[in-house]
Design a protein around this nucleic acid. Structure first.
Length: 279
DNA sequence: CGATCTACCTGATGGC
DNA sequence: TGCCATCAGGTAGATC
């Protein structure tokens, strides 16, 4: 579900609602969401009594800095949600796995039907040394501004089909199945173009499409698809799905040329494109 | 080393 | 109706 724009929206919400708050109690249901820990007691012990000092995003990961050196890492997987609750009497969703209650009242709940998401506590040092997914993340497309020629060099160094490369977290962090398709449409490039085959103009178009598509999606607070599984911290759906040019629009008219949007399989997953606008 | 697949889960949807 | 197959925002690990 959540890619960079959705995770960034939640990060901004957390910055307003959770940073400076102190954790009073932590309730864990089942072990799956905290599977990196030996048991839930250890997870709870490392959180209770700590104050949330900072919040940042690394790709699709959320990192909540705590007093001392510890960091609470959250990945939402396909169906994870972080939801604010006023208190214990707010109705509890069936798939709620972790409830964090703050001393001032108010709760942060982790809800995740498919359980691909997870939470764990580690130290700042271990983050880069012992969590390989985080240690090997590529550049952040919104935070790390780079020249077109440098971007072109990175593309040339990794000759790969463009969609595969955009979704590779080790190359660039935060782009998934929705935004890779939207970026490639905006750039006028096919999913299967090799990254080392682009002209200088195509490199510029791709870089620009990547930055603009993602920042527009952040402005619209992310995309919620038909199932409305993506929700922000307050439980509200995103607003960018109405701007989608290709994703989940197979059979519909391309907004630019009116030809039919096509759905294909790439690496075992769906990809959407306009065969007339993307070359 | 990289590319490709499969597994991990629950729930929604569509065909028969 | 119900039953079964398929599909879904992601990633790690096995197997080529």
């Amino acid at each position: 579900m959540p890619e960079l724009p959705e995770v960034e929206t939640i990060r901004r919400d957390l910055d307003k609602e959770v940073v400076t708050r102190r954790i009073k109690t932590v309730e864990v249901k089942g072990k799956r969401s905290i599977r990196r820990h030996k048991d839930s007691a250890e997870f709870k012990a490392r959180l209770e009594g700590k104050r949330v000092a900072s919040i940042r995003r690394a790709g699709k990961y959320l990192l909540l800095g705590l007093d001392g050196d510890d960091v609470l890492v959250v990945h939402l997987g396909m169906s994870g949600q972080l939801l604010r609750a006023k208190g214990p009497k707010d109705p509890i969703d069936k798939h709620t796995h972790v409830i964090i209650t703050f001393t001032q009242g108010g709760q942060l709940r982790f809800v995740d039907p498919r359980t691909f998401g997870e939470m764990f506590v580690t130290t700042t040092d271990e983050l880069t040394a012992q969590v390989p997914e985080l240690a090997h993340l590529g550049f952040d497309p919104l935070e790390h501004v780079m020249s077109w020629s440098h971007f072109g060099q990175l593309l040339a160094d990794r000759p790969t089909a463009l969609k595969t490369l955009l979704m590779d977290q080790k190359f660039v962090a935060g782009i998934g199945n929705i935004y890779s398709d939207e970026i490639l449409f905006a750039a006028g490039l096919r999913y299967d173009r090799q990254s080392n085959s682009l002209s200088a103009q195509e490199i510029r178009r791709l870089y620009r499409a990547m930055v603009e598509t993602l920042s527009e999606a952040v402005k619209h607070r992310g995309s919620s698809l038909a199932d409305e599984q993506y929700r922000d911290l307050y439980g509200a759906i995103g607003d960018y799905q109405g701007q989608h040019q290709v994703y989940d629009r197979d059979g519909q008219a391309c907004r630019r040329c009116r030809n039919s949007i096509v759905k294909v399989k790439v690496n075992g997953r769906s990809a959407f494109l306009c065969e007339h606008c993307q070359i």
